[in-house]
């Protein structure tokens, strides 16, 4: 028991150190940016006396280490400061924008898994055949196109030319603000509260960015699934199962796949973390009001509180997902246990 506790303590310590490092790096990158935060707050036409006054008000005339100390002290009280761009506290903004990203990433994850895993299994079963090659090229192609190009092409084809899907944004204007905000994820909120028109509309808006993001991250899932399956199919128990005359489908799904899903879950957790990154660009093209767009805008506007806050949130999620993958692996894999 004390061994477990020690592991727990060590893990916690390393997570905290990582997050602290993340804060330091972000803070200093932010402060050496060649953008005067004052210009971001006041605009280019502000006269010198106003500039000087606001610089003192914000403490930007203090030494860097002091500014960092203030930031850090507030951080411990969960106060991330205010965003210049939105005028709201950063924590409030994150609560506002993160659910949209979460919704998008989750939808993408579901699609990528539902398509990527079966494809990977298929490629493994047909190893070396044309099917295998087609699956590989198809899945690798997704991660070989710049995401923004894929997103714009998708808009041109599915929205403009074919008219199958709606354009940018999270929901049509007509339905905006109708469903009450509960989780912040529009599709879910609308469903819980029974606003089925809004739900349907939001779902349609979600399809395009989710598919783009899913296609982008599918290659990794497919490749890992294929690899795991190939290993599993070579296993002795498969030979035994074959000898027993079990059906091919049963062997593949029950025996081989049943043995790899633990490994797969860790892969999925890591892919999920990577999705947050792809979301930055996808959100820009689809005007998706998520954290990625919030972060990029803040960065370009030298809105440092917002940048620090959202980087920390993404960092925390990443660390958490990694940890989760690790724990799951340890808990569920008989070989590791």
């Amino acid at each position: 028991m004390s061994g477990r506790l020690r592991t727990l303590a060590a893990t916690t310590a390393s997570v905290l150190i990582t997050l602290f490092g993340l804060t330091v790096v972000t803070f200093f990158i932010g402060r050496v940016m060649p953008i005067d935060p004052i210009v971001a707050i006041l605009g280019d036409h502000a006269p010198p006396d106003v500039v000087a006054r606001v610089r003192i008000e914000l403490g930007l005339n203090r030494p860097l280490w002091y500014q960092f100390w203030i930031f850090f002290r507030n951080l411990i009280h969960l106060d991330l400061g205010r965003s210049v761009m939105t005028t709201h506290p950063v924590l409030h903004d994150i609560g506002r924008y993160f659910p949209a990203t979460f919704e998008l990433a989750t939808a993408a994850m579901i699609v990528a898994t539902l398509i990527g895993v079966p494809l990977g299994v298929l490629a493994a079963v047909r190893q070396g055949t044309r099917t295998d090659h087609i699956v590989r090229v198809f899945s690798l192609a997704g991660s070989s196109i710049p995401v923004f190009m894929l997103a714009m092409l998708s808009l041109v084809v599915f929205y403009a030319a074919l008219g199958w899907l709606p354009g940018t944004g999270q929901v049509s204007v007509v339905y905006d603000g109708i469903a009450p905000r509960i989780t912040g994820m529009l599709v879910i909120d609308a469903a819980i509260t029974g606003h089925w028109n809004t739900f349907y509309n939001a779902l349609l808006h979600l399809i395009q960015p989710a598919l783009v993001l899913a296609y982008f991250s599918m290659a990794y899932i497919t490749r890992m699934t294929r690899g795991f399956m190939l290993d599993a199919l070579r296993g002795e128990y498969i030979t035994t199962a074959r000898a027993k005359g079990l059906s091919a489908a049963r062997i593949v799904w029950r025996h081989a796949f049943g043995n790899i899903w633990v490994q797969l879950i860790t892969v999925l957790a890591l892919t999920y973390a990577g999705l947050l990154e792809g979301a930055v660009v996808t959100e820009t093209v689809f005007s998706w009001p998520g954290l990625g767009q919030y972060l990029t805008n803040s960065l370009l506007n030298a809105d440092m509180n917002a940048v620090l806050g959202s980087t920390l949130v993404i960092g925390v999620i990443y660390v958490f997902l990694n940890l989760l993958a690790d724990v799951l692996y340890r808990l569920m894999d008989p070989r590791v246990r």
């Binding site: 990154e277 990029t296 960065l299 960092g315």
Partner: peptide, 15 residues
């Protein structure tokens, strides 16, 4: 690693 790759690059280039 905890930094999103694109964001870190973006911040760094901006810096």
């Amino acid at each position: 690693l905890a930094f999103p790759r694109l964001i870190l690059a973006l911040a760094f280039v901006a810096a």
